[in-house]
Write a protein that binds this DNA or RNA. Structure first.
Length: 608
RNA sequence: CAGGGUGUAGCUCAGUUUGGUAGAGCGCGUGGUUUGGGUCCACGAGGCCGCAGGUUCAAAUCCUGUCACCCUGACCA
């Protein structure tokens, strides 16, 4: 039981100018967080309590899943990351500090290397596996652009877990623990009282094969997720496959032109949107051409020379980098540097599929929806607008067969029709072609990976198996953004007046509001109600400030505790207190003091 | 990293064009008033005008440099 005047809850009418997302605005206004630098925040007492509650649930479920908590250093010798080349792969994302001797340390962004380094020292036999270790700790990442308050900070609290196995399958194998973590994560976010979606995901620079993301459903989320209503399939847009799309009746690329190829002057219109406005065409009649450079190894570079990929999708679609990589069968690509590309003869901003023809080492990948000439739906030739391949020019009536500069229907290693775009709402589901994908937005709060032996191989971690042979240790890793979960909850659960906490992660369960902070009768009633609730296992904050009722009610809504109990003359005269749940619209009801715990339990659920 | 923008009181912002004693609202303190949804009144405290140079009799204001922060994109658990 705490009293408002004894703690620090600096509520404010106005949010800092730089706060834009709901969680940033509300957590700032309600006195939970304060910015100290770009992506660096103070967690004030209320935030601290909420974070502790989330952490407690996380620890509870991790322990139940057989994981053991430990604490690794935050400051790590850079050599540890050099060994797995992640000092390069992570690049500027890695914070570095230099000591007085000039030795460089990284501030841990995630701990695959140090946990492997630790484990390989003590684990030498398959008999010691499987092993799952975790920690809850502040992580550091020098984000290119921190944003949205604590949703993407440079310093944040994360639970990271790592598992070690002899095998992928079977008892004690990676798959078994991965599934256990999957269940633990589901339990964690369910217990936190959040609405979430589990999606298939790309594994990113951490690497590995399978991975799932746990997304808190929120319109303000940065990630787009797609769901199949029939099969239950859900995936991040970065990963989402598209079900079979019917080929055009005449075949890909086949069909007569819609008219004479016409060059049009489009000054200062490199983007699809600019052209759409300028020429008054619809984006679905444009071919969007995106140029990627293959990041070759020195060996590949010597063998194949510089390689480019030109991905073509319809103007209203987006290119999916992962699909481009997969289709081209290369490991790493990046958007071509414009200056570089222009030197190579690509008029960036005004590129058409023709730009890929007649150059060495350029692969042309055409999305199925872009590779048509006869529009079956419209029953006539498809009208295409695309780049003019010189600055400030586009062309109308582009026809694949007539204008590409080579026969697109001929078999050709450098031209491929495939799926290279992001899935959108309405696309056929990959798991049930009859069903249509639906979209939603989410905030990634958890991510689980099957790493395989990427790190153990890089660091030489193997154990002796029952067959007397050395085996690379198989790993999995599992992260939860603890501070991000707190912010995501606010993004998902708030209204115009403030935060609405799920009971499980609210800093306190109940706020006891004293109408007259200096009236002994009120004080006694407040203490007695608070003590009763505390005895029942609930956390209580008493607003004992010398403020007018309006201020207290506004602040109560703002800080968002699930239950508000008001001690005032009105209710006291009726022999009770006023009881109101944060998500109730009304003004509350008077309940007898004796039934407070019962009423509270109905709103909050049983005390933890 | 590219483009755009902002740094003045704890917070939100005027003042900069045209150089001349540092301003408002909220918040804070004191006194009064009010007392169930951000009362009202009076008085008061609070500023290295991001930092460093320069121009000038005089710089928040003009010039140069620099740092920090924000937005869009690129990138990203």
């Amino acid at each position: 039981m705490h009293r408002w005047r004894e703690t620090l809850i600096p509520t404010a009418r106005e949010a800092p100018t730089d706060a834009e997302s709901p969680s940033h605005i509300l957590l700032s206004r309600a006195g939970y967080i304060r910015k100290l630098g770009s992506g660096i925040y103070d967690y004030l007492p209320l935030a601290h309590r909420s974070l502790q509650k989330i952490s407690r649930i996380v620890r509870d479920e991790m322990d139940a899943a057989g994981a053991s908590e430990l604490t690794l250093p935050v400051m790590l010798p850079i050599e540890l990351y050099a060994g797995t080349k992640r000092d390069v792969d992570y690049g500027d994302l890695l914070f570095k500090v230099t000591d007085r001797k000039g030795a460089v340390s990284a501030l841990g962004p995630t701990h695959e290397e140090p946990i492997t380094e630790l484990t390989m020292a003590g684990v030498t036999s398959y008999k010691q596996l499987p092993l799952t270790l975790y920690q809850v700790q502040t992580k550091f990442r020098d984000e290119a652009r921190p944003r949205s308050g604590i949703l993407r900070g440079r310093e944040f609290i994360m639970k990271d877990a790592y598992s070690f196995h002899l095998n992928v399958d079977g008892d004690g194998g990676l798959n078994q623990i991965y599934d256990a973590m999957y269940r633990a994560y589901s339990n964690i976010f369910t217990r936190c009282g959040l609405s979430f979606t589990i999606v298939e995901a790309e594994s990113g620079p951490i690497g590995g094969s399978a991975s799932h993301e746990f997304m808190v459903n929120a319109e303000s989320g940065e990630d787009t997720i797609l769901k199949c209503p029939a099969s239950g399939y859900a995936a991040n847009v970065e990963k989402c496959d598209i079900g079979p799309r019917p080929a055009p009746s005449k075949g890909y690329f086949v069909g007569d032109p819609s008219g004479t190829l016409e060059e049009v002057h489009t000054p200062g219109c490199p983007g699809i949107e600019d052209v759409v406005k300028f020429l008054k065409v619809k984006p679905q009649h444009m071919l969007k051409c995106v140029l990627f450079k293959v990041n070759s190894t020195p060996e590949d570079l010597a063998k194949f020379g510089e390689e480019y990929i030109l991905a073509v999708v319809r103007g209203d679609h987006d290119v999916n980098e992962g699909k481009v990589k997969a289709a081209a069968e290369v490991k790493s690509i990046s958007l071509a540097d414009p200056a570089d590309a222009i030197k190579k003869g690509f008029a960036i901003g005004f590129v058409s599929p023709r730009a890929a023809v007649g150059k060495k080492g350029v692969l042309l990948l055409v999305d199925r929806d872009a590779a048509i000439s006869f529009d079956d739906a419209a029953g006539k030739a498809k009208f295409w607008v695309t780049g003019g391949d010189k600055k400030d020019y586009h062309v109308k009536h582009f026809n694949w067969q007539r204008d590409l500069g080579k026969d697109p229907t001929a078999k050709d290693d450098y031209l491929l029709v495939t799926d290279v775009r992001n899935a959108i709402a309405g696309d056929p589901s990959p798991k049930d072609p009859a069903a249509k994908l639906e979209t939603g937005r989410g905030i990634e709060v958890g991510h689980i990976f099957k790493l395989g032996s990427k790190y153990s191989d890089a660091m030489g971690f193997s154990v002796l198996g029952p067959d007397q042979q050395k085996h690379s240790v198989i790993m999995g890793c599992y992260g939860i953004g603890v501070s991000r979960t707190m912010a995501a909850s606010v993004e998902q659960n708030h209204d115009a007046d403030g935060i609405i906490w799920p009971a499980a992660i609210a800093p306190y369960h109940a706020l006891v509001v004293l109408m007259k902070h200096d009236d002994p009768k009120h004080l006694d009633a407040a203490r007695s109600v608070a003590a009763t609730l505390a005895a029942a296992g609930y956390d209580v904050l008493i607003d004992d400030r010398d403020e007018r009722p309006g201020v207290k009610f506004k602040d109560a809504d703002l800080i968002g505790l699930p239950l508000r109990i008001t001690i005032g003359d009105k209710a006291l005269e009726q022999g009770g207190v006023e009881f109101k749940a944060r998500n109730d619209k009304g003004k509350g009801e008077v309940v007898p003091t004796a039934s407070i715990v019962e009423k509270a339990t109905a709103v909050l659920g049983p005390a933890a």
